[in-house]
Amino acid sequence: MKPHHKNRGRAYYRHHRKRVIHRKVKIAKQTGWRSRFPGYFAKGKVHCSCQMCSQKTNADGFPHSQLIQLERLNRQLSDYFSKGE
C-alpha cells in the first residue's frame, strides 16, 4: 500500500483559485455584474439562471428547442395544405 501524502501544496491551490476568480471577475465586468468581494466568484457558476435570462425554462411552457420544432412542424403543415389547393 502506498503511503498517504499530498502531491500538491497550498501554493498550487491558491494559484488556481486566484486564476479562476480572475477569469470570472473579467466575465462579470464585461456583463456589468458587481460583487461585494472577488472571493464570491470562487463558487461554480458565472451565468444567470433566472426565468428572464434562461431560454430553456419550464415555467413559461415548452422548452426553447421544442418551440422551434413545433413552429417548423406547423410551417410544414401549412405548406402541405396550401399546395393542395
Rank of each mutant, 00 (worst) to 15 (best):
G39T: 05
W33R: 12
H47W: 14
T57G: 01
W33N: 03
Q30R: 13
G9E: 06
F62V: 03
Y13C: 10
M1P: 00
Q30K: 13
S54C: 14
N7L: 14
T57S: 08
I68W: 01
Q69G: 01
K45N: 09
L73I: 06
G84H: 12
R36W: 08
H64A: 14
S35W: 04
S54F: 10
P3G: 10
R10F: 15
C53R: 11
N74A: 15
Q66L: 10
Y13E: 03
K83P: 00
V46Y: 13
C50Y: 08
S54Y: 10
S82D: 01
A59S: 04
Q55S: 12
A42Q: 04
A28E: 02
P3V: 15
K18T: 06
L67G: 00
T57E: 02
S78T: 13
Q51I: 06
L77R: 11
F41S: 01
P63W: 14
Q76S: 10
S35T: 07
Y13M: 05
Y80F: 13
L73D: 02
G61S: 05
N7P: 00
F81K: 01
D60R: 09
R72T: 05
G32P: 01
K2Q: 04
P3F: 15
K26L: 08
A28N: 03
H15S: 14
C53E: 01
K56L: 05
C50G: 12
M1F: 06
I27A: 15
A59G: 02
G84I: 12
T31G: 00
H5M: 11
Q30H: 08
G84V: 10
T57D: 02
Q69S: 11
K83H: 02
G44L: 09
D79Q: 14
M52G: 07
K18C: 03
L73Q: 12
G39S: 09
K45E: 01
R19E: 00
R36N: 04
R34G: 01
R17K: 11
R75F: 12
G61M: 06
R23D: 07
R23H: 12
H22D: 09
R72D: 05
N74C: 09
K26S: 11
G84E: 03
E71Q: 08
K2C: 08
S82V: 02
Q69P: 00
H22Y: 02
R14T: 08
H47C: 13
V25K: 04
Y40T: 10
L67I: 04
S82E: 01
K29A: 14
D60H: 08
H15V: 06
K6D: 05
A28P: 00
D60L: 08
G61W: 07
K24I: 11
